[in-house]
């Protein structure tokens, strides 16, 4: 029976929900064990949260000062050393996992699968190509370690389980000093996190300016939603890059996605097609977003957004 290692993603204090989605993917593979490795977390909460996930059989913690904040070049040799005892190495398909895992795979001399969206067999996986316009089924031959990033929006995070043992490990891989963290500029808000929110309000080029986004923030606050944006709105400087939803931004699966002034370029739609209900409001009735919206309303968002907000008071 095979063993699975998942790279836990965290910000030093909290486990990222993408890890619980990786565990759901791992659970679909018929394996003997699912272990999570947590590197460089300053708080014990991260390992405890990982150990509490249903299906997890063990958590390994690595405490190296160089591991925090996480740098792919520093983490990769450690994970490659640890991977020797595993048949599968999984990481979330977030910017963390996408940066890190190919480096691990290359050190191991094996190919990597990106954005696994479904598990069709223990060694057979489906993933999107061409911005999600085609799906490809890939089989990893026996004897080759499976190294894959997991597309979070395709898997529901697992709940809590019985609790798994936590064990510190020492890794002796030589660590490079050629890569140094300088700073993280984060537009932290009190709103829910875009990647895990149940409700998302999102704006596009049609919103027109950074100031006008205040309308969406107000509605989001009213209903407890996260706020996202199309690439056009980010490129235009209305909002920071961490709000971008789509192929090259965040791929999300909220229960409700409300798109205001977003025309619906294919790259944007790729980021939301796993959403439960999609609402589109756009003044152009021909906008492609209406082709995939569950509920569409043609009209002026500057009238409609405040009206929705008012109706929900």
């Amino acid at each position: 029976m095979s063993r699975i290692l998942i790279i836990g993603e965290h910000d030093g204090r909290q486990l990222n929900q993408s890890t619980a989605r990786c565990v759901a993917c791992a659970a679909a593979i018929n394996s003997a064990s699912i272990e999570i490795v947590v590197l460089g977390a300053s708080s014990n909460d991260v390992a405890s949260a990982a150990a509490a996930l249903a299906g997890v059989t063990g958590v390994l913690t690595v405490r190296t000062a160089a591991d925090s904040p996480a740098l792919a070049a520093v983490l990769a040799p450690q994970i490659a050393a640890l991977a020797a005892g595993y048949d599968y190495v999984l990481a979330p398909s977030t910017t963390f996992g996408k940066d890190l895992l190919p480096r691990v795979a290359a050190l191991l001399g094996v190919p990597q699968l990106s954005d696994v969206m479904s598990v069709l067999g223990p060694r057979t996986f489906q993933r999107p190509i061409y911005a999600g316009n085609a799906l490809v089924t890939i089989e990893v031959p026996t004897g080759i370690k499976v190294v894959a990033t997991v597309r979070g929006a395709s898997f529901k995070p697992v709940g809590t389980g019985a609790g798994a043992p936590i064990r510190p490990v020492e890794l002796s891989a030589p660590l490079p000093t050629h890569t140094r963290f300088v700073e993280l500029r984060s537009g932290k808000t009190d709103r829910p996190d875009l990647q895990t929110a149940r409700l998302v309000v999102s704006g596009g080029r049609g919103v027109g300016s950074a100031e006008n986004f205040a309308l969406l923030y107000k509605l989001a606050e009213r209903i407890g939603a996260a706020v996202g944006a199309s690439r056009a709105a980010v490129d235009a400087g209305f909002v920071p890059n961490d709000m971008q939803v789509g192929q090259t931004g965040k791929i999300i699966a909220p229960e409700l996605y409300m798109a205001f002034g977003i025309s619906g370029a294919i790259q944007h739609l790729t980021g939301i097609k796993d959403a439960g209900t999609i609402v589109a409001v756009n003044k152009d009735g021909e906008a492609p977003i209406f082709e995939i919206a569950d509920i569409g309303l043609v009209g002026d968002l500057f009238e409609i957004v405040p009206e929705i907000e008012k109706r929900l008071r």
Binding site: A134, V136, E139, V140, K273
Partner: peptide, 25 residues
Amino acid sequence: VLRVTRYDTPPVRSKGGMVKTVDEL
């Protein structure tokens, strides 16, 4: 190294309905 066994067209989200007013929405 990897064996690509098949390509598929992704399932499409079907078009839903339109509403006329904020109340309906």
